[in-house]
Design a protein around this nucleic acid. Structure first.
Lengths: 204, 204
DNA sequence: ACCTGAACACCGTTCAAGT
DNA sequence: ACCTGAACACCGTTCAAGT
């Protein structure tokens, strides 16, 4: 009867992962022990090892199940071939970070750090961010083709990566220092690199 | 004779911190034990505790001594009141990340993560990044005043923060995925948000 | 004054023993 | 088939004992 066992196993894995995420939010990634997770989900330490290979495997499961970005919105914006500028697409990208079903930003930053020394966790995060990059690239394609008809694909690819790098910076800064809101960030990017200096029309 | 003792103490602290950084580069922050550091510098674990309060205190010392950014270049660019655009100042800012006297970028990212759960380490990093932000803000002032005479100070402050957030993103992405060089990043930022779409003049 | 290394409480991991 | 909890090697930290 493997089906019953599999369902039970999936439920156990979700139960443990959800409990682990609650402890992670409270105590930080490196200060969370398996004993705390076992207490939180009402099981023993051994039960965690029945359902996961080890602590790193549990971390990968959490990253796979809970870190997946909602990319439907970006895909939706791309439909119909409407021309959306990078600035217009950055807005939903940054807003998606604050989705309440997502782990808090500091937890994500701590997983980035773990991925630097855990190749398998790195692969999980790389796959997720690449899916996000692909959606952004598709959504940018009409704008990119308008900029340079022949090189639209290459431009969309480069700019999609760049928008994600800028979003990574926002996530890190928001977690560590909280200098700005997403709206202030976008406004300042346009003021710094945008077409016309802000305030010129008002001042002169 | 406290002077002899103090000099000896400083030398010991530097000896231990340099050894610790070598192990950090090899093994990552969380996989480096005090036993490894003691072996690397030829002392015992107890000797580390003679010279540092604990492991977190050693980490703070490393961050203070070795993470200080070279801001003289930015200050030099600001002298004489020359107008430098954000894009022009981003170049030396990103280049400074690859100074060979600085710890590698992945080590810095791991310290960011540690700072999220260590308020004293967070204060050290916040002080350093704020000094960098101040230099950038001064260097941006002529440009900002040119954009909007009355609001130059506020604009320079906002844009300095924004450039640092974008640099944070570059550091994180470079450490994790290495998508782009600094030059490619700047080019793509200008293509995405800059005044004229690239390639228009060439394409017609 | 400075250093050592054994001792302590904890961690992740394993595994014989239970149900 | 699933779970428990004691055992193990390790970690950061302390401290009596050395020089």
């Amino acid at each position: 009867m493997p089906r019953v066992t599999d369902a039970h196993r999936q439920a156990r894995r979700d139960q443990i992962a959800q409990a682990a995420l609650r402890v992670l939010k409270r105590n930080g990634v490196s200060d969370t022990s398996l004993a705390q997770i076992a207490d939180e989900c009402g099981l023993s330490i051994g039960a965690i090892y029945v359902n996961f290979e080890n602590k790193a495997d549990l971390a990968r499961f959490i990253a796979t199940r809970l870190f997946a970005w909602r990319i439907e919105e970006l895909d939706g914006l791309a439909e119909g071939g409407a021309v959306r500028t990078p600035a217009e697409l950055m807005r939903p990208l940054l807003a998606s970070m604050f989705d309440e079903n997502r782990p808090p930003l500091p937890v994500i930053l701590q997983f980035w750090s773990k991925a630097l020394v855990d190749p398998e966790l790195h692969a999980v995060l790389a796959e997720q961010v690449d899916a996000l990059r692909g959606s952004l690239e598709r959504a940018l394609r009409p704008w990119a083709d308008g900029c340079s008809a022949g090189e639209g694909a290459a431009l969309a690819s480069r700019v999609a990566q760049t928008c994600l790098i800028m979003a990574q910076g926002f996530l890190a800064n928001r977690s560590l220092f909280g200098w700005m809101s997403a709206e202030q960030y976008l406004d300042a990017v346009l003021a710094a690199f945008g077409p016309a200096p802000l305030g010129v029309s008002a001042k002169g």
